[in-house]
């Protein structure tokens, strides 16, 4: 029944396009964030003992994810395991009941997603990750919105990484193919010069060739010293490039090891990688 919902959000099923525009944002405004505290030591990113969810029921149970500088960490697991939720928790889009998130010697658990961007996190959502009516170049510019310095060098680096974007830089991002759009999305996140890049299923819906290409680029990004945390459906391929792999089941760590070791683990292979 509608009465259980927030009355301000109750549209009574109205979908009138002549008066309302659908698809508003879900993020809260940056009004209630706290401050970061120094917390030296430990891994570069340390999201430890995270517990929480959207409503009353927890989705994450004591989940821990860490990434070292310049390394690639991959989260895999069955559908509904809470992979994307864990990622959102690291990024501050989820209220945690327990646990903390530390980045580069600072405890950022109390920060809003926007503040985390300023602290050096770059996030590429799985869907709706570009500004469709804006050109590729404008997308990149918007990525650099919080930067006060000259960002042209960074833009050149992005174009070097994804040469196709340079050719299409005047074209609206919404008109690009799925793979190219993912490149724009990654490029936009790189424009802030993040220390940690988080990718939510970057290869969802792209062809195997494009997937390999994307993974190559991700390795290149990691080589420049940027840490990568990503969620992947294509577990086998992703673990192949992973320095560290996390297998989540029902919101908790099931297996944690190097990507190589996980691929070699017969138990993991049998249950999660299809033999």
């Amino acid at each position: 029944m509608s009465s259980s919902r927030n009355p301000y959000k109750d549209d009574r099923g109205n979908k009138d396009r002549s008066i309302t525009k659908s698809g508003g944002g879900e993020l809260e405004y940056p009004t209630k964030g706290g401050k970061a505290r120094p917390a030296p030591g430990g891994p570069f990113l340390a999201a430890e003992n995270m517990t929480g969810g959207y409503g009353a029921a927890d989705i994450l149970h004591d989940c821990t994810l860490t990434v070292e500088k310049g390394q690639i960490a991959v989260i895999v697991g069955p559908n509904g395991a809470g992979k994307s939720t864990a990622m959102k928790a690291v990024f501050g889009m989820l209220n945690l009941r327990g646990g903390h998130v530390k980045l580069d010697g600072e405890d950022i658990t109390a920060l809003t997603p926007q503040d985390r961007v300023a602290k050096g996190m770059g996030f590429v959502p799985q869907v709706n990750n570009v500004f469709p009516s804006m050109s590729v170049e404008e997308n990149l510019e918007m990525g650099a919105f919080i930067r006060k310095d000259d960002f042209r060098a960074t833009m050149e680096q992005v174009y070097d990484l994804f040469p196709i974007l340079k050719d299409k830089r005047r074209q609206p991002a919404g008109e690009l193919s799925g793979g190219q759009r993912q490149q724009v999305a990654v490029g936009r996140a790189l424009m802030t010069k993040p220390k940690l890049l988080m990718l939510d299923e970057p290869t969802a819906g792209v062809s195997p060739i494009v997937m390999d290409e994307l993974f190559d680029r991700i390795i290149e990004v990691a080589r420049t010293g940027i840490s990568i945390l990503m969620v992947e459906q294509n577990a086998r391929q992703a673990l192949e490039i992973a320095d560290r792999g996390y297998v989540l089941v029902q919101g908790a760590n099931k297996y944690t090891d190097t990507g190589e070791a996980l691929l070699a683990d017969p138990e993991v292979r049998r249950t999660f990688l299809g033999g």
């Binding site: 926007q114 404008e138 918007m142 919080i146």
Partner: peptide, 25 residues
């Protein structure tokens, strides 16, 4: 202009605009 582009960005994708540090207010 930067402000004009940020308006178009906000209109295109509210969440992504927020994540890019655009001030909605």
């Amino acid at each position: 202009t930067r402000t004009g582009k940020s308006m178009r960005a906000y209109s295109d994708n509210e969440d992504l605009a927020l994540l890019s540090g655009i001030n909605p207010e």
